[in-house]
Lab assay of single mutants.
Amino acid sequence: FACQWLNAHFEVNPDCSVSRAEMYSEYLSTCSKLARGGILTSTGFYKCLRTVFPNHTVKRVEDSSSNGQAHIHVVGVKRR
């Protein structure tokens, strides 16, 4: 389900990036709304992400508004 969900909601775009945590959060929200069992852990979800978008990269984005915490963004992917 996770791989199908990724294909339905995201697409390849080399000029874009999406927060990896936001992607997983949206996946969890969809699973909750659909009352799905067998929800992937974040590790399983990221493995699926690598399968669906094998050419993506990740980058660390520093967020000055959150006490220097960094966010991981998936580069080469955008929301549909």
Rank of each mutant, 00 (worst) to 15 (best):
F1C: 11
F1D: 01
F1V: 04
A2M: 03
C3K: 01
C3I: 05
C3R: 02
Q4P: 02
Q4W: 13
W5A: 00
N7Q: 12
N7W: 05
A8Q: 11
A8S: 06
A8E: 10
H9E: 15
H9C: 04
H9T: 08
H9W: 03
F10S: 00
F10C: 02
F10L: 04
E11D: 05
V12H: 02
V12E: 09
N13H: 07
N13T: 08
N13C: 07
N13I: 06
N13L: 07
N13F: 04
P14K: 03
P14H: 04
P14S: 14
P14E: 04
D15C: 03
D15M: 06
D15E: 07
C16H: 03
C16L: 10
C16E: 08
C16F: 05
C16A: 14
S17H: 02
S17L: 06
S17T: 07
S17C: 08
V18Y: 14
V18Q: 09
V18I: 13
S19N: 05
S19R: 04
S19G: 12
S19Y: 10
S19W: 13
S19H: 15
R20E: 15
R20Y: 03
R20H: 05
R20D: 03
A21K: 04
A21D: 04
A21Q: 15
A21G: 14
A21N: 09
E22F: 08
M23F: 12
M23T: 02
S25Q: 13
S25N: 03
S25L: 05
S25R: 10
S25I: 02
S25V: 08
S25F: 03
E26K: 04
Y27G: 01
Y27N: 00
Y27C: 00
L28N: 10
L28W: 10
L28A: 13
L28P: 00
L28S: 14
L28K: 12
L28G: 07
S29Q: 08
S29T: 06
S29A: 10
T30L: 10
T30H: 11
T30N: 15
C31S: 13
C31E: 14
S32L: 06
S32M: 05
S32F: 02
K33Q: 11
K33M: 04
K33I: 04
L34N: 04
L34D: 15
A35Q: 13
A35Y: 06
R36W: 06
R36P: 08
G37H: 10
G37Y: 10
G37W: 06
G38Q: 14
I39F: 12
I39P: 12
L40E: 10
L40W: 01
L40N: 09
T41L: 09
T41C: 14
S42E: 08
S42V: 06
S42A: 11
S42M: 12
T43S: 01
G44A: 09
F45D: 00
F45W: 09
Y46T: 13
K47D: 09
K47G: 05
K47T: 08
C48K: 05
C48V: 13
C48F: 04
L49A: 08
L49E: 00
R50S: 10
R50G: 08
R50V: 13
R50E: 11
T51V: 11
T51L: 13
T51Q: 10
T51Y: 03
V52I: 10
V52N: 13
V52F: 01
V52S: 08
F53P: 00
F53V: 00
F53I: 00
F53S: 00
P54M: 08
P54Y: 03
P54V: 08
N55H: 09
N55V: 10
N55I: 15
N55Y: 05
H56E: 02
H56A: 09
H56C: 04
H56G: 09
H56I: 07
H56F: 12
T57S: 09
T57P: 10
V58D: 01
V58S: 05
V58R: 07
K59W: 05
K59Q: 15
R60Q: 06
R60T: 13
V61I: 07
V61C: 11
V61Q: 14
V61T: 07
E62K: 09
E62W: 14
D63P: 04
D63R: 04
D63E: 02
S64T: 05
S65F: 02
S66V: 02
S66F: 14
S66E: 15
N67L: 08
G68C: 03
Q69C: 07
Q69Y: 06
Q69P: 08
A70H: 04
A70L: 08
A70R: 13
A70G: 08
A70Y: 05
H71C: 15
H71T: 15
H71D: 10
H71W: 10
H71P: 12
I72C: 07
I72A: 13
H73Q: 04
H73I: 06
H73E: 02
V74F: 03
V74P: 00
V74T: 03
V74H: 01
V75D: 13
V75P: 00
V75C: 07
V75F: 11
V75K: 02
G76Y: 02
G76T: 02
G76F: 01
G76V: 00
G76L: 01
V77H: 00
V77S: 00
V77K: 00
